[in-house]
Design a protein around this nucleic acid. Structure first.
Length: 784
DNA sequence: GTGGGATCGGTTTTT
DNA sequence: CCGATCCCAC
């Protein structure tokens, strides 16, 4: 057993006598931080929890804390700082570097996934994985699931890849391995009840296939890290003693597996500092467990808790609105966010007739604000619930020649040409990477189509050999001469790339691969607009590989290949990136993004758009009170991004799959006191809404009709989902007279279904009979 | 094995 | 509306 040499070994864990680092500058904490922040920074030993409201200087505390620790002589190598996004990690590293210089480089800092991947590369042989394991992204995983479902002859309408993937993912997040899963009576019974009895078997096959391909999916990086630590005491010992100080950002977003790993790692020294805000927990859908932060004090009774409640970001009006929303939630740690900033402007409510109208109004307001307040484009952000909503804003901004940048959506690394090229790189490093292999074996065309691949898969399954084996030895199997030659050429080519790995660095090899596979040529020959942009994207990727090579090559070894700048190193770094990371900080653009990706950012003026029932809150995540509360936290996060102006908007009509649909203003609008809001922009005049109709003869008729936007902020409260618990069926019954926000007075005729799925058939005086899903309904019972 | 036309289905957030 | 998939003709 090799325990890594620990340079801080001579120190006891709380000795701060001998500073190891040269003090570049002395940090004056009193000058830089408020009292509570300074306390949190200086409390280094033992468990610490910092509850940090929005705009309260959370990142500031974290960075100063690390800088302070290093100045106190703690070895940077023994500090582990975990974040959730690459952006947060990069920003923190930057800021610490500014504070203390190059010592910052030695802190282990990164996302959970990237830090664990780095450790797994070193240790994963213990689990039987090769150290050059591939990382499957969501698309790869879903493709694999789709293929397994097909191979097993199951109905792909029942076993939809999304459902299967999510089920497996949440199992992994709860540290349930495929073996555990199949032995767990509750889970299998649940699957039986959902008419998906084969899920356990699918999970087993999926795990097996990943293992054979030498690949891990995102969740495996976490689960395998846990398995590694819990099954190998020597490895656990090594990292427990390596990471004497552990810090976790956005702790409210940790899932069960991450929680346990942290618990294991900090078990010896108990120097664990978590920073977060339960009110900003918005990742339950990927397993985040808000209880982790709510229960932190129970897990670590000696914890020192600091609450950062002063907001330095937003005006009083914005803080007030945010508080109004979040206090509707029952599940939270008690705290009160306040600010010393000025009152600022009232929150504006924008009413639009349609989504296009919404886009137009927002663009108009941006123009106006730029002129009136001398705002720059960088000061604006448009935040929405779903990526699909960006369209109308893009169109409107483009029409007005306002530069904008969209974050998220189809990320750079998701594009077909990039995925194809990356597949070649992955296949070069790991020949067993099945997803990569299937992606490129017939691209560019080399005469190995589906028929041949099906045959090869069959052979592989029958002989029990990996697909790569079959492909690289086609002569051994019954294949036509033509296919055998093509396969042989392909395998030889990939092998030649592999042998070049020690001779060429990442960029040179990638360039060689692009040429040898004829991918460059293929894309270059496509002269269409999309083809051109595909070619440019590939060039962009190569540029970034070039950049990687340059930053990771040691100067004296220029031109040499090392473990730092070869293809394997590049892939390791890049497979966990979801965006180019190359956002031009200098470019003056309006930012468009989902609320989820806006966490941690701030803008002078924020538009929170698309506030319509079933869209925000989303109808797909409204099955319990907890779900509604998470949507509410999402709205809270959105509002607290704003510094000076906050504008919320909704449209009464929205295009969905090409059809114009009616939308109700969101209940969140009703949750803001009307006195704290003022109508703004867009006016309430009639607007033309374009629509179209396709005749049975496939003729399309476009016409526009006039539409007057409906006023929001009705007085009817949305019915709380808690009322629909099966054990509390009262509240609404057939025979009752009710008032509906939109349809007016009516009689409930009958109610069907249970829980949140309850539907009421109501006869309305003006609008006739309607069926209404009660969990969304804004209804009031009429007395008498 | 390839390419074009018809048909069907899906509606969320991310490492 | 958009992408995946199926079917059919070459």
């Amino acid at each position: 057993m090799v325990v890594e040499k620990d340079s801080a070994q001579n120190q006891t864990s709380n000795s701060k006598i001998v500073p190891l680092s040269i003090q570049m500058q002395t940090i004056n904490l009193q000058e830089e931080l408020n009292e509570i922040q300074a306390q949190a920074v200086q409390h280094i030993d033992g468990p610490v929890m910092v509850i940090a409201g929005p705009g309260s200087g959370k990142t500031r505390v974290l960075t100063f804390r690390i800088a302070y620790m290093i100045e106190q002589g703690i070895d940077a190598f023994s500090i582990l700082a975990l974040t959730f996004t690459n952006k947060a990690a990069a920003e923190m590293r930057n800021r610490i570097q500014n504070l203390i210089g190059n010592d910052a480089r030695n802190v282990w800092m990164g996302t959970f996934h990237s830090v664990f991947a780095r450790i797994l590369r070193i240790e994963c042989q213990r689990l039987g994985y090769p150290s050059n394991f591939s990382i499957y992204d969501t698309t790869d995983s879903k493709n694999l699931i789709k293929r397994i479902v097909k191979e097993e002859g199951l109905n792909d309408k029942i076993y939809k890849p999304n459902i299967v993937y999510n089920r497996i993912s949440s199992a992994k997040n709860s540290l349930i391995t495929s073996v555990d899963y199949n032995q767990d009576f509750n889970l299998t019974a649940e699957d039986e009840a959902n008419r998906r009895p084969k899920l356990g078997a699918l999970y087993r096959t999926y795990t097996k296939r990943l293992f054979e391909a030498g690949a891990m999916d995102f969740d495996d990086l976490i689960m395998n890290m846990y398995l590694l630590l819990s099954q190998h005491p020597d490895v656990l010992y090594k990292y427990q003693h390596k990471f004497k100080y552990i810090m976790v950002d956005e702790y409210q977003d940790t899932n069960y597996a991450q929680y346990l790993i942290i618990k294991l790692l900090c078990d010896v020294f108990q120097n664990i500092a978590v920073v977060g805000d339960d009110a900003q927990s918005i990742y339950a859908f990927r397993g985040a467990n808000i209880q982790n932060i709510l229960n932190f004090e129970k897990d670590y009774p000696e914890v020192a808790t600091f609450k950062l409640e002063q907001n330095y970001r937003s005006t009083k009006n914005i803080v007030k609105i945010a508080n109004q929303i979040i206090t509707k939630n029952k599940l939270q740690l008690p705290k009160e966010i306040w600010t010393d900033n000025s009152d600022g402007n009232k929150v504006k409510l924008i009413r639009a007739a349609s989504d296009n109208d919404e886009g137009r109004i927002v663009a108009d307001i941006i123009q106006e604000m730029k002129l009136r307040n001398h705002y720059k484009n960088n000061d604006f952000a448009i935040l929405y619930r779903t990526n699909a909503q960006s369209r109308s804003f893009e169109e409107a901004l483009r029409r007005q020649n306002i530069p904008y940048k969209i974050y998220g959506g189809l990320s750079f690394y998701q594009r077909k040409e990039i995925k194809d090229f990356m597949a070649y790189l992955r296949l070069t490093v790991n020949h067993n990477d099945e997803e990569a292999l299937r992606r490129v074996i017939n691209y560019p065309r080399r005469g190995i189509g589906d028929t041949s691949m099906n045959k090869i898969t069959l052979i592989a399954n029958e002989t029990g050999r990996p697909i790569w084996e079959v492909i690289s030895n086609p002569a051994l199997y019954k294949l036509t001469a033509r296919v055998a030659t093509a396969l042989d050429a392909f395998a030889t080519m990939i092998k030649s790339f592999r042998s070049l790995m020690t001779k060429k660095d990442a960029y040179d090899l990638a360039h060689h691969i692009g040429k040898a596979t004829k991918m460059f040529k293929e894309l270059h020959n496509d002269k269409s607009v999309e083809g051109l942009s595909r070619y440019e994207n590939l060039q962009e990727l190569l540029n970034s590989i070039n950049e990687f090579r340059d930053t990771n090559s040691e100067e004296k070894l220029a031109g040499e290949v090392s473990d730092q700048n070869n293809l394997g190193a590049y892939l390791q770094q890049v497979s966990l990136l979801t965006d180019t990371g190359k956002d031009d900080e200098n470019a003056d653009t309006i930012k468009l993004m989902t609320i989820h990706s806006a966490k941690g950012l701030e803008f002078k003026l924020v538009f929170v758009v698309g506030l319509e029932e079933n869209l925000f809150p989303s109808m797909l995540s409204m099955n319990s009170r907890e779900d509604l509360e998470e949507e509410r936290r999402l709205f809270y996060v959105a509002c607290t991004r704003a510094e000076e102006h906050l504008m919320v908007s909704y449209a009464n009509m929205r295009y969905r799959y090409g059809n114009l649909q009616y939308c109700e203003p969101s209940r969140f609008i009703d949750e803001i006191s009307p006195f704290d809001m003022e109508a703004y922009g867009g006016s309430t005049q009639k607007t033309n809404v374009k629509t179209s109709w396709e005749s049975p003869m496939k003729q399309r008729f476009n016409f526009s009709k006039q539409f007057k936007p409906k006023q929001a902020a009705g007085n009817l409260p949305a019915i709380d989902i808690t009322d629909f618990k099966p054990d509390n069926p009262a509240t609404l019954e057939a025979g009752m007279k009710v008032v509906h926000q939109r349809f007016g007075k009516g009689n409930i005729q009958h109610i069907e279904g249970e829980g949140p799925a309850r539907m009421a058939t109501i006869q309305f005086n003006q609008f006739g009979q309607k069926r209404i899903l009660l969990k969304y309904a804004k209804l009031q019972i009429m007395q008498g």
